[in-house]
Design a protein around this nucleic acid. Structure first.
Length: 993
DNA sequence: AGCTAATCCTA
DNA sequence: GTAGGATTAGCTA
């Protein structure tokens, strides 16, 4: 049911006729292979429509249409011909190859489920003007998809134009830039200049420049005509005076009619769901293979099961050319046709779900045969495989290298898998091959080391693969693609058009187990892939992959591509069926190249600072050790909790507090601090020794080992799919847990430095999780406090304990702060008591009072638990799902744990989604501002982004980065509290933070 | 050599 | 009370 157009709605009006001509001339000729039917303009039209519509599904970037219509000219007999019979009189007949495409483009429009509008006696431009006006009157916005200057008179604050072929937005500023007059003066300008193509007369000798100058001087056309006698230049004056009447006729011709009696009102142009099968049927009939593949994938349609549509078109040398502007094959020519409600149309979700089901069943029983894989040893065979991949528009690949570290890995081989949906033999449905690129002969000893025989020259093979990997029209599928992406990036290849099965699984099944290939293969295909250690060994005897025998490598590597492709076939349709396609497309896939580039850049770490710190820490640790052995009266391993426990609680007989899970005495800081408070000297020494040796072993000693030999920078690795909530994780080294809370710890941050002439900028969200909580739980006091910018913990304390914010004791605020965090973590009296060192009963009192003061919190928690129990998952504000399969456990501990996690996940996860969006947008924003080369994003620490910026660009970059981050939720989610970002630049990370 | 537990660093 | 990763010790194979 269409709802009435309202404010915030946005209609796209596509100038179909204009597009046909431009596409026909701008695009290379294209014919349908089967019969030579010219389809170039149709192809361009379909690609543009698809692009517009897929942007339409994206709520996170650009303009989102709510309504859309494609508008065509009907015939050349319009009211303009009556005013001026010469109008468009000199138009040549359309090129022969264009003629059949008029009807096809109307067919295409209908296949897209879009209204196709044309009216006898009116040009497309008039209909567009009418709808644009109606939209503005309804308070909505309109975007006209065209670059025709005749339409520019419509541009205004609420009406824009967009050139779909040049991907360019045309607003008021662009009109002024191009023509020297604002849109409302375009009619005056065109009246003076005329138009030779349409045979609009105008004034001889006056072109756009002169017209703009004249209009600037006289204000508007009427004044100009009135005062024409006063024009200084003789020739110009005479021409205008002589042609006054023609100018007035021209004005009538170029003025668009804004009150056409349109049959469909705006509301009936509301954007309908895509009908995947119908569109695929049409595209198949046109044999637009690449677009068919993309559409099938995005709509969850199994293309092989769709019959090509019956599209019959008369064409050829002797086919009668129709009237220039008439789609004569169109039986409904004079009436606008909206999508028909009574047409049977399976919903996208239902078909996708059926496909997902069918695929899962099929591939869980389709056997995998490692002996069937091909080893590609010559360029011709490789080219044939690449061509086949192009033909299918789909392939899976995997790289084999010498290292798990993508920054050090050298490419050794490449595997490829193809899917032939129509294969009759089950064994031919998936074909896979391995291309050895740099395998070595021998065993890696003195005798070996040369290249093994039977390999394509490395550079030749790579050049061929580059063509494939960078081809936008072929979807490349990989498992954990960020690794392969980064490796290929280092060989000068930027993979385009890709999917990652790990990310698919992550989006679909977060919380349901791991997303590694072996686990996914077992889960979905019932197949256990060859373990890596069976080909390369393990431990000390492990060899790098370049020394693996090529036949053995083929069985292993091709299987990875094979399995990846099968996983994709099973998982991809679920994306639509389970309504998480947007999460995958907007929060996961686009982040992958962003992270790969961050990892490639790395960050400078000052080796000398670390080594000096290491020395200091070693001395202090040694001093503590002496004192500890003295106090304990014997030497032992202080780092062994077991030995330490025996000394403290056995030999010295101190009162042991807690025990660990395995029944040992706990020696945690809490326990040791308690003992120290009772006046025992040893425990506090242990605590200090631990702090010092922790900093030394984990940071000052370990970090230099991660400095890359070539560029001397540290390259962490981010995992996109390691957490359940949507956060990233960082490893080797983990740069998300660099110390900050103690003075000693912070010294380590001073070793993270900017290059000469640069600064490090740290930009972090302030209290983002509490803000998310205020938003999702809709807590009035919290929202107000954030809106007013007041201290949120002090406000909480004041609300709970009745203490005024002014002059509040630190301890009171500290307790409120702990409670606020507790709420985010799915509070329990046990945990809060532990954190604050108070009795459980007292903690219970606090919680009770909190819920009384902020009743919305309790409601939110109960609602979230109920959602998790009823559906098995909870969601972030952007639709990311986190599953809790054990939420209904009968074990109280397990159930409670799952409930707390389920309460935390939407908060932590929504915040994680916000920063993901910021990360995806910040680089394009910097490039657009001309700062692309001077600003580099290096690190992410959950709510903080770290950039390295050329000195001169720091101020401008800071403002832009803050703005992108603060607005990152928009327009998908308009938060009820403002997001606040603090940013600072300095020479090192400690001072910037 | 590979695994788990304990501990501690981060948001 | 949430979410991670690294280190060390100490056990098992």
């Amino acid at each position: 049911m269409p709802s009435a157009m309202k404010k915030d709605d946005h209609i796209f009006l596509i100038d179909g006729s204009g597009f046909i001509f431009r596409a026909f001339h701008a695009l290379p000729p294209l014919t349908r292979k089967s019969d030579g039917l010219p389809v170039g303009a149709v192809s361009g039209f379909c690609n543009m429509l698809w692009k517009l519509l897929t942007q339409a599904r994206d709520t996170s970037v650009g303009v989102t249409p709510t309504h859309l219509a494609v508008i065509f000219d009907f015939s050349s007999k319009t009211f303009r011909k009556e005013i001026y019979p010469e109008y468009k009189a000199h138009r040549p007949p359309p090129p022969e190859d264009l003629v059949p495409q008029f009807a096809l483009i109307r067919e295409a429009t209908r296949a897209f489920n879009l209204p196709c509008i044309e009216m006898e006696g009116y040009e497309a431009d008039d209909i567009i003007a009418t709808y644009a006006d109606l939209a503005v009157k309804a308070g909505a916005e309109a975007t006209i998809i065209s670059s025709d200057k005749d339409l520019m008179q419509l541009v205004g604050p609420k009406v824009h134009m967009y050139d779909g072929m040049k991907d360019r937005q045309i607003g008021v500023a662009e009109v002024i830039e191009k023509w020297g007059v604002p849109p409302e003066k375009m009619i005056d300008l065109q009246s003076l200049t005329g138009d030779s193509v349409d045979n609009v007369p105008g004034v001889p000798g006056i072109g756009p420049k002169t017209a703009a100058t004249l209009l600037e001087e006289f204000g508007d056309l009427d004044t100009l005509l009135e005062k024409a006698e006063t024009i200084k230049q003789k020739k110009r004056r005479e021409n205008i005076v002589a042609n006054k009447d023609l100018v007035k006729v021209s004005r009538e011709l170029v003025t668009l009619k804004r009150d056409c009696p349109v049959e469909l009102d705006l509301d009936s142009l509301a954007l309908d769901d895509q009908d995947g099968p119908k569109l695929v049927a049409f595209l198949k009939a046109m044999s637009f293979n690449s677009l068919t593949r993309r559409v099938a994938e995005a709509t969850g349609t199994e293309a092989s099961e769709i019959e090509p549509a019956d599209v019959s078109v008369e064409w050829g040398a002797d086919a009668h050319g129709p009237d220039l502007d008439t789609g004569d094959a169109d039986t409904e020519a004079s009436s606008a046709s909206a999508p028909k409600a009574n047409e049977p149309s399976l919903s996208g979700e239902a078909t996708a779900a059926a496909l997902a089901q069918a695929r899962a069943e099929r591939f869980s029983s389709l056997p995998i045969d490692n002996k069937a894989y091909v080893t590609i040893r010559d360029l011709d065979t490789l080219a044939a495989w690449v061509d086949a991949a192009r033909d299918k528009g789909l392939c899976a690949f995997d790289t084999e290298t010498t290292s798990l570290d993508a920054m050090q890995a050298e490419l050794v081989g490449f595997s490829l898998a193809l899917y032939d949906e129509d294969a009759e033999d089950d064994k031919q449905v998936i074909r896979a091959a391995y291309i050895p690129l740099a395998h070595k002969s021998g065993q890696g000893d003195l005798l070996g080391g040369g290249l093994a025989e039977g390999q394509i020259p490395f550079d030749d093979a790579l050049a061929t693969l580059k063509e494939l990997l960078e081809d936008e029209a072929v979807l490349k599928v990989a498992q954990n693609l960020k690794y392969d992406y980064l490796v290929m990036l280092r060989y000068g290849i930027a993979v385009k058009a890709f999917d990652d099965t790990m990310l698919l699984s992550y989006v679909l099944d977060s919380g349901m187990g791991g997303h590694g290939m072996d686990a996914l293969s077992e889960k979905w295909l019932g197949h256990k892939p060859i373990p890596y250690k069976e080909v390369a060994g393990s431990g000390k005897s492990m060899i790098t992959f370049d020394y693996v025998d090529i036949d053995r490598a083929t069985a292993y590597a091709a299987e990875d591509a094979d399995v990846t492709l099968r996983l994709w076939l099973v998982l991809k349709p679920r994306l639509i069926a389970e309504r998480v396609a947007t999460v995958y497309e907007r929060l996961e896939r686009p982040l992958l190249p962003v992270l790969a580039r961050m990892e490639e850049r790395g960050i400078s770490v000052d080796r000398q600072i670390l080594s000096r710190l290491s020395g200091e820490l070693a001395q202090r640790a040694a001093a503590y050790e002496d004192e500890i052995y003295e106090l304990a009266d014997e030497k032992f391993n202080i780092g062994s909790p077991k030995q330490l426990g025996e000394i403290l609680f056995g030999k010295m007989g101190l009162p042991g507090g807690k025990k660990t899970k395995s029944g040992q005495w706990s020696t945690s800081v809490q326990v040791l601090d308690d003992l120290a408070a009772e006046g025992h000297p040893l425990p506090s020494k242990i605590v200090e020794w631990r702090q010092v040796s922790k900093l030394k072993s984990t940071y000052t000693d370990a970090l230099p080992g991660y400095i890359h030999p070539e560029d001397k920078r540290v390259h962490t690795s981010y995992s996109l799919a390691a957490t359940t909530t949507g956060r990233l994780s960082s490893s080797e080294p983990n740069l998300q847990n660099i110390p900050v809370r103690t003075a000693d710890g912070r010294k380590i941050r001073t070793a993270f430095v900017a290059n000469k002439g640069h600064k490090l900028l740290s930009a972090d969200y302030s209290q983002i999780e509490l803000r998310v909580l205020a938003h999702v739980a809709d807590i009035a006091q919290l929202k107000q406090a954030f809106a007013d910018g007041i201290d949120i913990h002090a406000m909480t304390a004041s609300e709970m304990f009745g203490v005024p914010v002014e002059g509040m004791p630190g301890e009171v605020r500290r307790r409120a702060k702990a409670i606020n965090f507790g709420i985010i973590y799915g509070i329990s009296a046990f945990g809060l008591a532990n954190q604050l060192g108070i009795e459980r009963s007292e903690a219970s009192e606090y919680i009770k009072r909190y819920f009384e003061r902020f009743p919305g919190i309790k409601d939110y928690m109960e609602a979230t638990k109920a959602q998790a129990r009823d559906h098995g998952f909870v969601e972030t504000i952007f639709g990311r799902r986190i599953h809790y399969p054990e939420i209904r456990s009968s074990n109280h501990q397990v159930r409670s744990f799952n409930e707390r996690a389920a309460i935390n996940a939407p908060i932590q996860g929504s915040a994680a989604d916000v920063i993901r969006r910021a990360m995806i947008r910040v680089e394009p924003a910097l490039v657009e501002a001309g700062l692309g080369d001077q600003v580099k994003m290096l690190l992410q620490v959950h709510d903080e982004l770290i950039f390295e910026i050329e000195d001169a660009a720091v101020d401008q970059a800071r403002d832009l980065i803050v703005s992108v981050m603060e607005n990152a939720s928009m327009p998908a989610v308009s938060m009820a509290v403002p997001l606040q970002v603090d940013a600072r630049a300095a020479l090192n990370w400690d001072e910037a933070h």
